[in-house]
Write a protein that binds this DNA or RNA. Structure first.
Lengths: 212, 212
DNA sequence: CTAAAATCCGAACGAACGTTCGAACTGAGA
DNA sequence: TCTCAGTTCGAACGTTCGTTCGGATTTTAG
């Protein structure tokens, strides 16, 4: 790998770290310059704009998750196994690349135009893949009141993508434990022995809540 | 309510809408001025800084969720019922105040200093309350391998707070359906009849993933 | 009507932003 | 040693940012 590519990667990694720390829009090119010890002008030898930095971080990151996932799913038929692989793949990559994945999750709307569309298309495919796996899982079961597939899909992503708000990869809870807990929780619920189906959801007048 | 307070509220609501649309840091006071038809200088008659706007949005919003929750939880003993109330309260408020709640969730780290600490303390209390309810739910059951309480708590918040990324309060899916689906999903899982407990979580070498 | 108080805003401030440019370095091949 | 492409950066550009200030306008109270 050339000297250029090495420095290019180093700048991307550093930028991802700072974007994750203080968000894209409040990070200045001067911040990145300071953290990399590359002069402000020098940065533009390695990228054509600040927005391209964000795009490259998101796109590289997504590409690696997807590539790895496809490898791991090859030849697997059982839907539950597929779901396990999907969850483990997502969470372990997230934990090992917290900054990049936080930037991918949290700065989803910070790109505009074609760059946004490019990442967004990839994200849609990823979402549809998850949804398809969940559909297959659901079809192997027969339930009288199945969970709405859209809710389930986004609830799963919510569970997984929220971890940048609390999870410490170097803490007590290992990634494998995190993944198995999320898998169990999603599949069988917090209280697996389904004793309590009558759910006490009170109806509520929206007028109490909304602004007007 | 005085003329001043009305306009003050109007500015807060408008600011929340724009913060939700294009994020706090890339919203300018000029954007808010344009959207409210209040001159740039005029805005500072109603707030002392842009940061105070963000704080007031977050703090008001949180205060209302908490106040309503405490009312609704009064006298309730059954842990499962408590959990149902908690989830419905959170989701219905979220759906009815999407902008404010998105700002509360997504701009959690955009405040600094005392303002951040103030909101953060409230958030911790809210989290601990959820955790306590989950602990009570868990204690009414006896499971050989209970779900980790921290994972469960943040997974629940992940499910619920992620909705600003996909849920349309005016779409087909009613809030009550959303809430009951989330409740069922969290309690009993995506596949309630617990047939598949042996989870195929493959171990993975971290070195494949991490940057170094 | 008058005066004081509340509300509003045009214009400008200094600071920070993303980006550019031309010149100065550096190291490898001839 | 000389050359030239690749790399680096100080300095500056034009723009936008949050905020302020003095005065104009409107509302309120006596």
């Amino acid at each position: 790998m050339s000297r250029y590519d090495q420095k290019h990667e180093f700048i991307l990694r550093t930028a991802a770290r700072i974007f994750a720390e203080k968000s894209y829009h409040s990070t200045s090119m001067r911040d990145i310059s300071r953290a990399t010890n590359v002069s402000l002008a020098g940065l533009y030898h390695y990228c054509k704009s600040k927005e391209e930095l964000l795009f490259l971080i998101q796109d590289n990151c997504f590409g690696r998750v997807l590539e790895r996932l496809e490898q791991r799913l090859q030849g697997v038929e059982d839907p539950i196994t597929k779901l396990g692989i999907f969850i483990e793949n997502h969470l372990s990559f997230f934990a090992a690349n917290m900054s990049e994945m936080k930037v991918l999750s949290h700065e989803a709307e910070s790109l505009g135009g074609d760059l946004y569309n490019h990442v967004s298309t990839r994200k849609d495919k990823y979402t549809q893949l998850a949804r398809q796996i969940l559909r297959e899982v659901q079809e192997t079961q027969q339930s009288q009141e199945p969970i709405d597939l859209t809710v389930a899909t986004y609830a799963l992503f919510g569970m997984m993508n929220w971890i940048y708000n609390w999870y410490d990869p170097h803490g007590k809870l290992k990634v494998s434990d995190l993944a198995s807990n999320v898998m169990k929780l999603f599949l069988n619920g917090f209280v697996p022995n389904g004793m309590c189906r009558g759910l006490p959801i009170p109806a509520e007048s929206p007028s109490v809540w909304s602004h007007g």
